[in-house]
Structure formats: C-alpha cells, structure tokens
Design a binder for these strands. Structure first.
Length: 417
DNA sequence: TCTGGGGTCCTAGGACCC
DNA sequence: TCTGGGGTCCTAGGACCC
C-alpha cells in the first residue's frame, strides 16, 4: 500500500480574516488583522464572547471564548466587529471551490477547514510542497485571506502540522518528524485533548505530547477509558480515517438553542421560546426530508446549571405543532421554576419516511402538515420573518430562533476525523 | 454589559427480558 | 441455601471539536 499524502487547509483567524478582507474590499483603509481586534457577539443580548481574534489581539492574551468585557479590560482600544455569517459561508465556499480544482478528494471539516487527499496527484501538480504553496498563494491573491497548509500522510498529522507557526505558512509533519516537531508541544495542543483530559494528564505529570507518547497505554486506559487509547495513538501519529469526498455523511440529529436576551421565568414565555426553536428545527427537518423519533429539550439556568430531558416518540414526525407539544411536555417535567438564560431543542434518531403511518391513537396531524408546508413555502419566498404567530407580538421574543437553512450543508465532525 | 451555537461520541446506571 | 448473568434499550450528563 502506497503512502497517502494529505493536506489540511486552515484559514488563519477565519472569522476575523474574512471580515478584514471584506472591509478592505469595501474601501476601508484599516486592515483589522494589523490591529488588536476581534469578532464577537452583542453583550446587550448576552452573546458577548470572542469568536475570533487578530494576531495583535492575541498579544494582549485575549482568547477565543472569553467575554468581550474581559477582552476589553485587557485591551481598551480593542476593535470589535459583529459576526456576518452569510459572508463567512460565502468565503468558506469560495475556498472550497479553489481546492476542488486541485483534487476531487476534498472534505470540508468545519467552516474554515478542509482536508485534501493529494495522493498520486503529484503527476498533475508536481511536488506536494510546491503545490501547497501554489494553493496558499492563490487563495491569498484571489480571495484576500491567508491559510495555513499542513502536509502529512494522514489527517491527524496534517491537521497538527497546519497548527504550527501562523499565518500564511506551509508545514510538513511526517512520521520521522514527530519527535522533533510534535512531541515538545504542550499536551493540550494535541487534537482531542481538551480541558478535562489535559487536567487529568497534568495531574499525572504528563505535560507534553512526547510525555503522553511515552506513557504506558494501559495506565491511560484505566484513567481515560477508550479516549486514553485514542490520544495515545494520536501522540504517535497513528490515525487512518479516509478523506470523505463531497457527499454528506449521514446527519444524526439537528438542534437549535439560544441564550435569551433576558431571563425567562414564566412557563408561558418558555413555551413561546420553545416554539421559536421548534419552528427552525422542524423547518430544517422538512427541508432535508427527515423525520425524527427523539425530542430533547435543554436549558441553562441563571446560575449556569445545565439540564436536559429527552423522550423517544412512538412514531417519526416532522410536524411543528407535534414536536412543540412534546417539547413543552418535556420542559414542564424538567423545569422547577428556575430563571432561565438559555434554552434548546434537539431532534435525533432521524429517518427518511416516504409514507406516514398514523396510529389510531394518535391525533390526526394532516391539517398541521398542510399548514407547515404552506408556511415553509411563504418563508422560502418572502423570508423567515414574513409570517409569524401572533403570540410573539410584544413578547420581546423572536418568532424563529436559530440558523438559517444552509443551501449546501457540509458534514460536521463525524466520528473523530 | 460575564460566560455562543452547532455538532458527535462515550459512559454509567437503571429497566427489562430471557 | 442464595441472590445468575448476558443482552438491549433508554436516559442524563460529560467530553471533545470548530
């Protein structure tokens, strides 16, 4: 079996770079990337966290995920831009379009990451390293933002390589380079080692990826179960999942959740929020022609405690009203009256149902189906806010909450890589 | 003006069945 | 006398990713 050549393409500070490139293109003279700046939500509606930061902002020790309040206290002159998700999606797709010219085997891994299988494409494009530079520079010149490209023989090592020095760089991380390039790194920089795992490893004095690689995997197994074996393999560069081209991986579930602009403390209001979440979830369900057999609600209280409650339902459904009724039931069973800052609805156990089975004991949802269909058509034609239930008037709540339907959904994090 | 939103996978414990 | 044991399904919570 011949060795694979895999590229991992990672947009540098994606949201921030995209916004910066857009502003320059609009005639703005300031490049956000050259000053301390972040993309972040609106603190007034309690969405105030850093989504992406410029390299100068990083010098102030500003971190992704921290509050804007805290970021501003570190750097009072910080420039804050609002996220423009439509722009982000367009930039993401434009990058994918360029990559497709080089290989048919590309996989979108997230909004700002792609894997490209370059195996046996060197006859076409020459030396992989040269090709990577070519791609990187083309993206910079044509799209106005920079990427890092990592090159190796599997996805894990390619991804680790793209994390090396930024921005606008190409790095390799082949097996023989692992001790020199990867083992000195702190443990938390290994893919799949998050906060909880790094805490456990540090308490056992495992500080670097090299330390992890040289730990007896049986010890890891006892403390971290199968995850311990996974990261031990990763520390040795062992990983062999294929680059999945094009077509979507089967989606397992879909959900919408939102942090509310104010604490919700009445049942009626909570039910209204649930409806606004169910409206988008069920519309996505219908758009992708799925039915769900499991409904889950979750919330986070004012004290930041999280709860969830789920139930399998007797027959698959995509009906707004039906899912809403179940969500309300679940909510009522779970909620003890705490003030709520965040609420979510998620459906899963999806199936394609070409025919609808109606049990004798279920109520007839045929009328609801017709209404759902009609509303979907109106919203598609005139926008998602063109029609809403009157109960939202003066409620201070949005009638639909959550992401818009993406024209072209990409497969999200599938099993690990 | 403190702390997003979208996912997937794993684990533990209980119910239930044979 | 004592307290099987394996399998599956369901649920809640936690871990990780971007």
């Amino acid at each position: 079996m011949s060795k694979h050549i895999i590229f991992h393409i990672d947009v540098n500070s994606a949201y921030l770079s995209w916004e910066a490139a857009y502003r320059l293109q609009q005639g703005d003279s300031l490049d956000l990337r050259s000053v301390p700046s972040v993309v972040g939500g609106d603190p007034l509606t309690r969405h105030g966290i850093v989504l992406a930061k410029s390299i100068p902002a990083k010098k102030y020790d500003i971190k992704t995920g921290e509050t804007l309040y805290s970021a501003l206290s570190k750097c009072p002159d910080l420039i804050i831009a609002k996220p423009n998700y439509l722009l982000f999606r367009q930039c993401s797709q434009a990058l994918g379009d360029i990559l497709k010219e080089y290989s048919p085997l590309i996989q979108q891994f997230s909004v700002d990451e792609y894997f490209v299988d370059f195996t046996s494409l060197d006859q076409l494009w020459g030396d992989p390293l040269k090709a990577a530079y070519l791609i990187k520079d083309r993206v910079k010149n044509e799209l106005g933002f920079t990427v890092n490209i990592g090159i190796s023989t599997n996805k894990l090592l390619a991804k680790m390589a793209s994390e090396f020095q930024k921005p606008d760089k190409v790095h390799t991380l082949f097996s023989e380079e692992i001790p020199e390039k990867m083992w000195p790194l702190p443990i938390e920089e290994l893919f799949m080692v998050g906060r909880a795992t790094s805490q456990k490893l540090l308490s056992r004095n495992i500080k670097t990826i090299g330390d992890l690689a040289h730990t007896d995997p049986r010890i890891l197994r006892t403390t971290l179960k199968s995850h311990g074996i996974l990261i031990w393999n990763y520390a040795h560069g062992i990983e062999n999942s294929p680059v999945r081209p094009g077509g979507r991986v089967k989606v397992k579930g879909m959900g919408n959740s939102t942090t509310l602009p104010f604490d919700v403390d009445s049942r009626k209001e909570a039910h209204l929020v649930l409806l606004s979440l169910v409206e988008t979830v069920s519309a996505r369900l219908r758009h992708d022609q799925y039915f769900a057999q499991l409904v889950a609600v979750s919330f986070r209280t004012h004290e930041f405690l999280s709860y969830s409650h789920q139930r399998k339902i007797s027959h698959p459904t995509d009906c707004t009203n039906e899912i809403w009724e179940i969500a309300c039931e679940l909510f009522d069973e779970l909620w003890k009256g705490q003030p709520l800052r965040h609420m979510g609805v998620r459906v899963s156990e999806l199936c394609h149902n070409d025919f609808l089975q109606l049990s004798f004991f279920e109520r007839d949802y045929e009328k609801d189906r017709k209404i759902d269909q009609t509303i979907d058509v109106i919203r598609e034609r005139f926008g998602s806010h063109s029609i809403m239930r009157s109960s939202y008037l003066h409620s201070g709540l949005k009638a639909m909450t959550g992401g818009v339907i993406a024209e072209e959904e990409y497969p999200m994090m599938t099993s690990l890589l």
